[in-house]
Simulated scan of single mutants.
Amino acid sequence: MILWSWGANSHGQLGLNVANEQVEKPTSVNIELYNNKIRQIACGGGHTLLVDSEGKLFSCGWNNSLQLATEQEVHCFERTWRLSGINFTHIACGWDSSCGITDDQFLFVWGSNSYGQLGLPQNDFPKNVKPIRLQVKACAVSMGLRHTAIINFKDEVWVTGCGRHGQLGLGKEQLSADRFSKVPKLGKISHIACGQRHTVAWSSEENALYVWGDNRHGQLLLDTQKYPKAYTPQKIDIDIKQKVKKLLTGWSNILLWLEDGTLIAWGCNIYAQLGTQQTSFSGSRTHIKLPDGRQVKDIALGSEHTICLATDNTLWAWGWNEHLNTGIKSADEEKYIGKPTLVPLEINSNSIITQIYCGGAQNFIVTEEKGDSDPVL
Rank of each mutant, 00 (worst) to 15 (best):
L377S: 05
Y271K: 11
V51H: 04
P291Y: 12
E368H: 08
C60M: 10
A272P: 01
L107F: 02
N113M: 08
S176I: 05
L66N: 09
A149F: 13
N36W: 08
F88I: 02
T27I: 11
N9M: 09
L120Y: 10
I328R: 04
I356N: 05
N17K: 15
S5H: 03
I352M: 05
T148A: 06
I337R: 13
R216L: 12
I240T: 07
G293K: 01
E369T: 14
Q67C: 11
L118Y: 14
G327M: 05
K154S: 12
N20Y: 13
E322C: 13
I101C: 08
I151H: 04
Q196D: 10
G116K: 03
N64I: 08
S280N: 11
L49A: 10
N215I: 07
E369N: 13
G163I: 04
E304A: 15
N36V: 00
N207K: 10
Y271D: 07
G195S: 04
K226S: 13
A272I: 09
R294H: 12
G261T: 02
F364C: 07
H47I: 07
V74F: 06
W110G: 03
V376K: 02
S181W: 08
H147I: 06
K127E: 11
V157Q: 02
D103Y: 07
S5I: 01
T249H: 09
Y336E: 00
I328W: 04
K289A: 08
K339P: 05
G161R: 08
T89D: 03
S10F: 14
L107Y: 07
V183Y: 11
L168K: 00
C76N: 11
E334I: 12
N36S: 11
L120W: 11
L16R: 00
G12L: 06
R216T: 14
G213A: 02
I352S: 05
A361C: 14
W212F: 15
E21S: 14
L342A: 08
T224H: 10
L324G: 05
E21Y: 15
A138L: 03
S59V: 08
N313V: 06
N30E: 10
D124N: 13
Q295E: 12
I236R: 11
S349F: 12
H47Y: 12
Q13L: 03
L255N: 00
S112D: 04
L186F: 07
G360F: 01
T341R: 10
P26L: 02
N207D: 01
A317M: 04
S114R: 10
N363T: 14
L342Q: 05
T70Q: 13
G161E: 01
L309A: 06
W212P: 09
H147F: 04
A138E: 04
A208T: 06
I192A: 04
G283P: 14
H47M: 04
A69T: 06
N123S: 13
K154D: 10
F58Y: 15
D374N: 10
S65N: 15
G218D: 01
Y115K: 07
K127G: 05
C194N: 02
G7F: 04
Y210V: 00
E54K: 09
D124I: 03
L68M: 11
E71D: 14
G261I: 01
V29P: 03
V211M: 03
G169V: 04
Q225C: 13
L14A: 02
